[in-house]
Nucleic acid binder design. Structure first.
Lengths: 240, 240
DNA sequence: CGTCCATTTGAAGGTAGTCAACAACCGTGG
DNA sequence: CCACGGTTGTTGACTACCTTCAAATGGACG
């Protein structure tokens, strides 16, 4: 299905955000109302961890982050990747403690927004409150689109959808959507797509063999965008 | 993992809602601020459909609903089941059109809240706005817990988690959490859990064979709660 | 230059999917 | 009241996709 395609698909929310990155909070406006702190992070650094106190939300300014859930018995799953402009930590609103971990995949920077202050600001500025509400709803939509994808697509189709999504997000940030370097490992991609890392590798090799993409470790080039779209949209080319 | 267990697990949000049903909107308060319309629905009736205009959100008052996403090429997935107190349609906030379908599984009733009015009410009543924000964040948490479950559990474990969740939700509504009648078909359960309906049947038969549950079509009795918890928490009893 | 981690590739096995038939149940209408 | 058709649920056999286990390669970094 490919989230990028859906974003442009007027069947669904045409001008609505498909990805948390699009219509997040207006930082300019926020800065006048709440104390915004800049936080530098290094690759591998944990921004926050499940169980720690929830007291602020973040907006990614640079770098790439992953969010993950870990169950009591150690099962673990990456729930998303966040890039510039994306909201981070808002899923814990209403909870005294965070429900997930956020880890930097490379050096980066976030803007920290103390949540009590954000809440007060929202109470006084309806536009701000609307933005937050919309951003949360957009996260729900994104999550559910991925649920649909993971529940109905094969491993190869999921990888195609994932690469298209990454490309679209890079493009939305002004970078090339055809040629980019992924910040995440195969294991992290697999965790997000609910497949094993070996399967991620195999699928990428397959896609490369079909001429859809070019892969060199984390460097990706989307060669045949149409074919990828077709795959991610459920076209069941099951030729082996 | 079982969402019910997590709800009670202080590792995560102890007193925070695990399910959209818990701390939704305060209808009493809302009624004084926005025009609330009651809508009766019959089993099978579509409350709203993807692509239709988004103009209101709903609170389930009676009956059971499913929400589902359908892709352009026809792939389909149930994204959740909603019971009394649960919010319906809030995932489309910020979008001009709805992103999903909502279908009544049996006769029921919902309260319709025109969204523009809700938004205006929120602007004037910070508590209301906070409730909406918290409800949305809680939906995100629920979705992600299920993502973790579906990504890391076997079919049988998913079914165990599903039944525990259903039981916990019934109990939260004042019904028996041990003995209840499901409103959804095997196909709908399978769609939600990302497994086929035959697999749902097989897993239930398996669980019954182990003495964990008793099944008679849609009638379920949770006999060995502890064993179910263990299964849903990842205990890999793979004895055949 | 050596170690470690990430990635790739191969072979074998298992879990869930597919296809198909049957049984049970429901509501309807005779 | 019972017959009936259609839907829903159950079960079996076979298949396929993905996982698991294992080993080798390639980079990154100290």
């Amino acid at each position: 299905m490919n989230l990028a395609a859906i974003r442009a698909d007027h069947t669904f929310a045409a001008n609505a955000p498909q990805h948390p990155c699009n219509p997040t909070l207006d930082l300019e406006l926020l800065r006048t109302l709440v104390p915004v702190r800049r936080i530098q992070v290094k690759a591998g650094q944990v921004l926050y961890r499940a169980g720690s106190a929830f007291d602020s939300i973040y907006v990614v300014h640079a770098g790439c982050f992953k969010t993950q859930l870990v169950s009591a018995d150690g099962r673990e799953r990456t729930t998303g990747f966040r890039m510039r402009g994306d909201l981070l930590g808002a899923d814990s609103i209403g909870s005294p403690v965070r429900m997930s971990d956020a880890v930097a995949l490379d050096d980066g920077e976030v803007r920290e927004l103390p949540y009590p202050a954000v809440m007060r600001a929202c109470a006084g500025v309806p536009e701000l409150q609307a933005m937050l509400t919309v951003a949360l709803a957009a996260e729900i939509r994104t999550d559910r689109q991925w649920m649909l994808a993971l529940g109905t697509l094969t491993a190869e189709q999921r990888v195609a959808a994932f690469l298209l999504d990454l490309g679209a997000r890079h493009a939305a940030l002004g970078y090339s959507g055809q040629h980019f370097v992924m910040r995440m490992t195969r294991a992290e991609i697999g965790s997000f797509l609910s497949i094993k890392l070996e399967t991620v590798t195999r699928c990428m090799t397959l896609l490369a063999g079909r001429g859809c993409i070019e892969v060199r470790r984390r460097e990706i080039r989307l060669v045949d965008h149409a074919a990828l779209e077709a795959l991610a949209s459920g076209a069941g080319l099951r030729m082996h």
